[in-house]
Structure formats: structure tokens, C-alpha cells
Amino acid sequence: MSAPAEHGISTSDLCLWYGAFQALKRVDLEVKHGLITALIGPSGCGKTTLLRCFNRVNERYGSVTTTGLIRIRGKNVYDADVSLIELRRRVGMVFQRPNPLPLSVYENVVFGLRIHAEKRPPKSVLDEAVEKALTEVGLWKDLRDRLQAKATGLQLEQQQKLCIARLLPLKPEVILMDEPCSALDVEGTRAIEELMFALKGKYTILIVTHNMAQARRASDECAFMLLGELIEHTRTENLFLNPSNPKTAEYIEGRYG
């Protein structure tokens, strides 16, 4: 089944429990394809949990019960014919702490290709993928001579870009970012945000952030969550200038957080 192309992610009536604790309460969210959508809200409001629903990686973190519907590009991710491996290949995630694998820069980028290839991909294909992905994230110039360097020894900003580059050869539809800049300094944050702008259009980008200024400058749409509920979701300017819900207004004014 295919939904209108502009749908990136949509959820309806999504509830999630960790054991007996309900972490998500009837979330209805429509994320448009090709835009950057920011998820904001105080700690523990379920942003990260929601993000992890989209590639069903929540299921690896212990006893989780999910009800409701999640569609990625129109496809229900709980359909019986959905392979978790294919889903996670198309829905990539970037973490708070950059987590390059303890391999070389080169091997990090081709890791996905290697694990999804039926037989050993030829070197030319891999080389090309590395150059393309690193160019796309703006690392190629800096690292072209250090492809065999240990990825865990790079600067944090480069590590985080590498983690994004690692997703690209798999041709993702959606890139989920879980506070991708919170371990980075101002320069690193700016670099990652510029990278997000560069990637916008091709991918659905969903970014969880604690930093309201970042949500404001780096996103097209913004969704505010509180205690597991989606309170408000609209164009970013609207949310920050004319929040329709008083809870949103109080949060963006910094009355709680």
C-alpha cells in the first residue's frame, strides 16, 4: 500500500508501555517527508522512546508493549511481511554520544553494505560508496588520506558526521537523530546542523533535542511532547511565536524543563 508521497512517518493512537509504565499515550503524529522535524519536550517525556519506535529497536531493550499504528513512508511497520533488518536499514539512527564502531573510518562507512550484501561486495563499489557518503557529510576532504585511521580516535564532531555517513550507503528513507549535538561544542553543533540542511529534501529527518534554540533554528516543523503525550505539532515559527496550547507556551518560555 502506498500513501501520499509526502508522508514520512505517521503514527495513530500509538501507546507504549515499559512493563507497567506507560511511556507513550495515544500519540498521533504526521511527519512530512523531506523536512526536518524537531521533537522537543522535557526529560522523560518520551521523545527518545518515540524515536526508537520508528525502527522498532525498542524491542531490543527489554519488555516493551506497543499498540497503535506506525507507518513509515506509508508502510505499517508492524505488518507481518516487514523484516526488522530491512526496516532498520531504511530507518537509520544517530545517537547522542557519537558511536562509531571500533573499526577504521572506511570500514565504518561500508559496514552496512557489508552486512547487507549477499556476497562480498567488490572493492570498487565500496570505495565509491565511501567517497560518496563522506562527501555528502563533508568529511571527504578531511579524511580522504586517513580512511584507515581508527574511527574512535577522530574528533567528536567528525565521529558524529561519520555516524551519519554510515547510514547513507544504505539509502535510508528516514534519519532519526537522538540529540545528535549534545556531546558537541558550538562549532560541531553548527556543522551537524548545516549537514542536516544539506541532507534535507532527500530524507525525512526527525531530531530529538533538548535545545530549544536548536529546534527553532534548525527545524521546519516542531512537535512538543509532555509526559508521553503529543501536545502540539506545527510549523516551527508557529510553535514558537503562537503556541496554541498553554503548556507549550510555558515550556518554550522556560517555566519548566
Binding site: V57, R88, R89, M93, F95, R97, G112, I115, C163, L167
Partner: peptide
């Protein structure tokens, strides 16, 4: 985090 990185690119 190494394991998470793997799961999230679809490694078995």
C-alpha cells in the same frame, strides 16, 4: 553503544 550502532544499521 557498539551493539546499538550495529542494530541500527540492521545487523543481525
Amino acid at each position: 553503544s557498539f551493539r546499538e550502532a550495529c542494530w541500527n544499521v540492521g545487523a543481525s
